[in-house]
């Protein structure tokens, strides 16, 4: 399980962020001791850090600057300051991404996922019940049978694969699609899902995507 360290001084946000991360299949850890932030980070050894700019004792940007001297842990800056200067400054200190409060939680999860993926060694394909999902080529492959997926279908499949066994809401799928600049509407989403279903069926996986009424979809 990926460990994500939350460096943030507001208790409510801490608790809620941790809950959100835990629900999404990560291990959320809250930094408590701001006196020796750097040592604490080394002790916890997280896979990713969510870092607020306004933290006690030391400014978040300074902490990031210090951290970058010794470590390459991916960092997403989370802040309520909304100016270009802050963003440019954070990125120049070596943040991997930058999110402003109040953030869309789904989007934050997507960003976390993207940053973790970027920093990991990329996998060429994902194996799903004997079907190879090759994202770079936009195809799924069963033995010698290659089925081409559209960009939208690939985004949906990918999102479902990342949450395999868990419910993915239509909102989540929508956010993921829009985040990839595919501004489709509700009807188009339904069409895409049914097309994806039939393509998976063609590859030999029946009823891969289950509909949970009023909740969303599960990839089994």
């Amino acid at each position: 399980m990926k460990k994500i360290l939350i460096i943030e001084d507001d208790t409510t946000i801490n608790v809620e962020l941790k809950e959100m991360l835990d629900n999404a299949g990560y291990e959320g850890v809250i930094l408590k001791d701001f006196d020796n932030s750097l040592d604490e980070i080394t002790n916890i050894n997280p896979d990713l850090i969510l870092l607020d700019i306004n933290i006690p004792k030391i400014n978040g940007q300074m902490l990031l600057k210090e951290l970058r001297k010794s470590s390459n842990i991916p960092v997403i800056m989370v802040t309520s300051r909304k100016s270009e200067v802050d963003e440019v400054l954070s990125m120049s200190y070596g943040a991997d991404d930058y999110v402003t409060k109040p953030y869309n939680p789904t989007l934050l999860l997507l960003k976390i996922n993207a940053v973790l993926k970027r920093t990991n060694i990329p996998t060429n394909f994902i194996n799903y019940h004997g079907v190879k999902v090759i994202q770079a080529k936009g195809i799924i492959k069963k033995d010698d049978l290659e089925i081409i997926l559209t960009k939208n279908e690939m985004i949906i499949l990918n999102c479902l694969l990342n949450n395999i066994g868990n419910i993915v809401t239509r909102d989540d799928l929508m956010t993921d699609l829009w985040n990839n600049k595919e501004y489709i509407n509700d009807n188009a989403l339904s069409v895409n899902i049914s097309r994806l279903r039939s393509k998976l069926k063609e590859a030999g996986i029946d009823d891969a995507i289950e509909t949970r009424k009023g909740q969303g979809y599960i990839l089994k």
Partner: peptide, 30 residues
């Protein structure tokens, strides 16, 4: 404004973590 964004961020997280029927309306108001 920076201060008020903190409770707003908390609110959207709480809404996200506690799925319920009124969520959509709360989200809209947020």
């Amino acid at each position: 404004i920076h201060e008020v964004k903190i409770p707003l961020a908390s609110l959207s997280l709480i809404v996200h973590n506690n799925k319920s029927a009124v969520n959509k309306k709360i989200k809209e108001q947020i």
